[in-house]
Amino acid sequence: MRGCNIIIVLLLCLLFCGSLVYGEGFTVARVKYNGGGDWYSNPSSLGNLLEYISQNTNIVCQKEPAVVEAGSKEIYNYPYLYLNGHGRVFFSEAEAQNLREYLLAGGFLHCDDNYGMDKYIRSELKKVFPREELVEIPFNHPIYSCHFRFPNGPPKIHEHDGLPAQGLGVIKDGRLMVYYTYQSDLGDGWEDLEVHNDPPEKRVAALKMGTNIVVYSMTN
């Protein structure tokens, strides 16, 4: 099993490198899930994040993200998966299994609550990792400092319930595999400026945190 995982990781790396060489740069993938929730929300967010990463790191990114289904093997083509929405998320057993294997093999899933997804995603992540808990990530974790510094944890982009922004995660064998931003709404911060008219510093903070998450996903 371990050998398989290693092979899968190597394949991931190869695919990733291949995508860089042949696919005009790095990209991320948006997870399309069932359940009725708006998996497609914040349409301009990931494109803007990719652009920001290109400009502020030495990662050459494509302009647009991909879309993958939770149960599809295509997810292995992307080291970073993004899942967001305002409503119900549902994973079938097969999809949960697929995600689990992907994450154990080195993949990374970023769940971002746009407000309303919280109760669903927590229970659905339990399907993916029944024995693991979502724990709050301490501020000295590398995800908060691997490229830009966030000494106070994830930035709070939009007001939800008046609670502080939290970064929660599933950690296995010391590796953060799933990162869940709650009461933060990074995706809104990545949107085109005119969508929410956020203060520029909020938008930049969101993009910077997104950069950190992507960089972390690629380097760990």
Partner: peptide, 24 residues
């Protein structure tokens, strides 16, 4: 506070400075 007051407003949040969560 939890259910009825889910007020979805796209308004900029205010960062709340707080101590870091403890180590895992």
């Amino acid at each position: 506070t939890q259910r009825i007051s889910k007020q979805r407003r796209s308004r900029a949040g205010r960062d709340i400075v707080r101590p870091s969560p403890s180590e895992i």
